[in-house]
């Protein structure tokens, strides 16, 4: 009986050791993915801010007026094309 218990305890120790190692490995793997996700999020934050600044630039009255005139000219050309 005691040999059986000793065997079970040893098996438990081995299981714990393997389990701990597995957990640590999984933790490292998760940290690796987390670091990558962290970079990806930061890349997207940078992209988002870049686009925001671009929009801020394009929202100046001069740019909006230019875009409006461009739109009106295009509409005029379409109308003239339709008449012809």
């Amino acid at each position: 009986m005691k040999w059986l218990l000793a065997g079970l305890l040893f098996a438990l120790a081995v299981t714990l050791a393997i389990g701990t190692a597995a957990l640590r490995a999984d933790n490292a793997r998760s940290r690796y993915h987390l670091e990558r996700a962290f970079h990806q999020v930061r890349d997207r934050v940078i992209e988002y801010r870049r686009l925001s600044v671009g929009l801020l630039d394009e929202a100046s009255p001069e740019r909006l007026a230019a875009a409006h005139w461009q739109h009106l000219r295009a509409a005029q050309q379409r109308r003239e094309g339709a008449v012809q």
């Binding site: 490292a28 940290r31 690796y32 987390l34 670091e35 990558r36 962290f38």
Partner: peptide, 15 residues
Amino acid sequence: GYLKDGSGRAYFTAP
């Protein structure tokens, strides 16, 4: 701070 292994892989530690 973050960790890096011998193969250059980065591991997250904290924000």
